[in-house]
Design a protein around this nucleic acid. Structure first.
Lengths: 198, 198
DNA sequence: GTCTATAAGATGATAGAC
DNA sequence: GTCTATCATCTTATAGAC
């Protein structure tokens, strides 16, 4: 039974878009209300406080992102391809309205967030880092690529690169910027793979 | 004649700190006033609107950062060392209160910024990118390191990595995180250098 | 569930005294 | 230059009708 999207989901969708484009401190219940054609008081019925909304949104984002990572592992056996698909997730996000990663934006604003929201942001980065560590270690074991030092360091480097690429591309106001950067990162990985495979 | 810091400068300092830690949309004239022990109306005398304040702050940051880059070139002839000192600038910023690069934070919020502020942010990234391109090309010519593709791509990658490292370190709420990441980046450059020098 | 009405506080900004 | 006083507006949030 395909249910119509609930109002609560529509609110989360609108809030996510607003935060990805403008930030947590630059959107209001009014903005969401206008986007959905309802009144801001109605939103309080579904999410009593902005803290509730933020925490549930971050938790949903974290959960759905984790599911996408699981889907990559399930559908793709090769470690290099897994990393490329990982990078694609960020690129696809940025393609639409130059949106940032929700948790990347919230992370920049973390000093202003209620603890319940900040905790989910931290969880998102820990989840993602752990997933990358697993992919990197498996890929190294399978000789699909080589890198020095702990996989954790490499994972953080990769994550920082993708989050940062979105920010820099925004600052330069150059939509194509991220595309070329992701492409370049890919290019820098492939030779490494080729080298290791030779 | 060493003049005491003017009120205008003190306002810019306070505003910069607030934006680096909280963001443009999370600070008010009142916050600055409280930090300086004055009234918010006094700030309007120096900066009539928040747009004025933001634009002049971003312009000052851009100018001072450019000066730091010039100082690196002047004081350090080696391209690899120049890049390491460049990375140090970001690390030093983050060391204090996990502050982000001012323009990194503004870049995330760029959709909400007045055009005068956004233009300075864009200028900051263009300046920095151009400086990196020059250092990278000179270093490649001098055989201090090697990389494939245009220097511009490499410059953007490096800039994205450092900006992103700050964001990710914030999200993980791990102050030591950035230190290790910058260290890892440095480690990944050195072998490359050693390889090229062999 | 959604609405109207309303509250209390914050915000950017201005007028005018000192 | 800095102050007090004041503003219109926005923001999160609640009460209560429908």
């Amino acid at each position: 039974m395909v249910q119509n999207k609930s109002t609560a989901d529509a609110i989360l969708d609108a809030a996510q878009r607003l935060i990805q484009t403008r930030g947590y401190n630059a959107f209001s219940y009014r903005d969401i209300a206008q986007a959905l054609g309802i009144r801001s008081a109605s939103i309080h019925y579904h999410f009593p406080t902005k803290t509730d909304l933020g925490a549930r949104l971050a938790a949903r984002y974290r959960r759905l992102f984790r599911a996408e990572l699981d889907a990559i592992v399930e559908g793709e056996p090769d470690a290099v391809e897994r990393l490329l698909k990982f990078a694609d997730l960020f690129q696809q996000t940025f393609e639409v309205e130059s949106r940032l990663c929700l948790c990347g934006m919230l992370s920049a604003e973390i000093a202003t967030l209620p603890e319940g929201v900040a905790a989910e942001v931290e969880g998102f980065f820990r989840d993602t880092e752990a997933w990358l560590v697993a992919v990197l270690e498996e890929g190294r074991k399978a000789k699909r690529f080589s890198f020095s030092g702990p996989a954790k360091e490499q994972a953080r480097l990769l994550l920082a690169l993708l989050e940062g690429a979105m920010v820099v591309a925004r600052g330069l106001r150059d939509r194509a910027h991220f595309r070329s950067m992701a492409g370049n990162y890919i290019a820098q990985m492939k030779p490494q793979t080729a080298r290791a495979a030779r």
